[in-house]
């Protein structure tokens, strides 16, 4: 009787960046820009914490929190789409991308509602230092959400044609990394602007 052979250890792949190097350079530039913006907000607040706290209290924290849940869920759906492509199920991944786009559209709708409420209350960039930061920071992020949706749409078109697979992951991983960056900066923006007083 032959002794059972122990299973061979899985070959270890060397550490690699998921996606194209160019998109990661772009992501670093974006992280740097958002980082500087966040730190500028925090130091501007330090000069006038009472005003910032009072105006922060008037923000719609429910909308901010729901938008955080939507972005996180969109990110999770994108992860599932990438995993599906890795398993050779690109068309199945396309359905996850549609779900992610749905969450992103929900974020956009809520944000437009917030802006409409702010503008109808007479709030503008020149209302106060806090509102200058609130409007410009969130709008800067909003533009990134819109670009992220265009990228997710392009990934969806390719995924439903069965383009992605274990040997063609570069496009979907690059697009996914960009989307996660949009989510990542919001994870700091939400507590910073809406909650921490």
């Amino acid at each position: 009787m032959r002794a059972a052979c122990p299973p061979l250890p899985a070959p270890r792949t060397p550490p690699t960046l998921a996606g194209d190097l160019a998109i990661w350079i772009f992501i670093l530039a974006e992280l740097l820009a958002f980082g500087v913006f966040f730190i500028a907000y925090a130091f501007a607040r330090a000069n006038n914490p009472e005003l910032f706290a009072a105006e922060q209290l008037a923000l719609n924290r429910d909308a901010g929190a729901i938008n955080t849940l939507l972005l996180l869920t969109a990110s999770y759906f994108v992860v599932r789409a990438v995993h599906a492509a890795e398993a050779g199920q690109s068309r199945h991944g396309a359905r996850w991308l549609v779900a992610a786009l749905g969450c992103a559209a929900g974020f956009v709708a809520i944000k437009i509602g917030e802006y409409a409420a702010a503008f109808s209350a007479g709030i503008s960039l020149s209302s106060s230092t806090f509102h200058m930061f609130y409007l410009s920071l969130t709008f800067f992020h909003f533009m990134h959400v819109l670009l992220g949706m265009v990228i997710l749409g392009a990934l969806w078109l390719n995924a439903r044609r069965g383009l992605y697979g274990p040997h063609n992951m570069n496009g979907i991983e690059s697009g996914a990394a960009y989307w996660h960056m949009v989510d990542l900066v919001w994870l700091i923006l939400f507590p910073l602007v809406y909650v921490i007083r």
């Binding site: 550490p15 690699t16 960046l17 998921a18 996914a176 996660h180 989510d183 990542l184 507590p191």
Partner: peptide, 20 residues
């Protein structure tokens, strides 16, 4: 809490746990 959430997104969702 925000930093922990960010680390989870960076390492798992962005797959940087498998990066150099």
């Amino acid at each position: 809490v925000a930093a922990l959430k960010g680390a989870a997104v960076i390492l798992d969702f962005m797959a940087l746990a498998r990066a150099p």
